[in-house]
Design a protein around this nucleic acid. Sequence first.
DNA 1: CCGCCCGCAGATCATCCTTA
DNA 2: TAAGGATGATCTGCGGGCGG
Length: 204
Amino acid sequence: MSDINHIDKKPLIRQIIRIKNMICNCCKVSVRELLEQHGIKVEELELGYAVVLYKGSEMSLEKMDTLLKKLGMGIIKTREDQMIEKIKQAVVDLVHHMNNVNSIVRKSDYLVEKLGMSYQQLSKAFSHHESITLEKYIILNKIERIKELIDQNEFSLTEIAYMMDYSSVHYLSGQFKKYTGYSVSDYKVGLAGSKTSLDQIGQD
DNA sequence: CCGCCCGCAGATCATCCTTA
DNA sequence: TAAGGATGATCTGCGGGCGG
């Protein structure tokens, strides 16, 4: 009797979950692996969201959130959370995934166009939700991208400045030192600290 | 000569706050 | 919710120094 009821009460739930701090394909691999290890079928998986199928009696959103937090991620719950995550992904797209110089338009214009909200609204929501301003978040992402380009050792600092939409190499150099505490030269010879994970940007 | 770094002044922009 | 103003931060342009 109880066994029959137990089986009947195992409905499969299909749900879209929004996931924060997914910033690259490596994250997708990790998320899929983690969820499948816990019996969750992943039907679709993109940066920022997944379509999952799971047994309601064995798994819940809370449990999934706990699992994802082990990867530095988590499930987005409120509308504001979702908006902040969209802003972050737009910034990551802009800074890290656009190698075409011409595509790097004014950051605020790009975000306004991509998210369909005024810059004031975006900035206010971001500052309210995070410990840094939207502008600083963009700059910190650019610094991490610059570190990557320096590590690749393919471009001079002048070329990197041009690629990252700085008007001059000297301003890039100055901003790099301001935000990291060490110069580009120090970073190149390994005297400085390592790169920061994108999901840790802005978190003290 | 080239690449990198630094300082300064002025222009531009982002953010915050107030008001309607 | 949008508009406008104030303020501080960021960015640019110029000039110069240093080391390879």
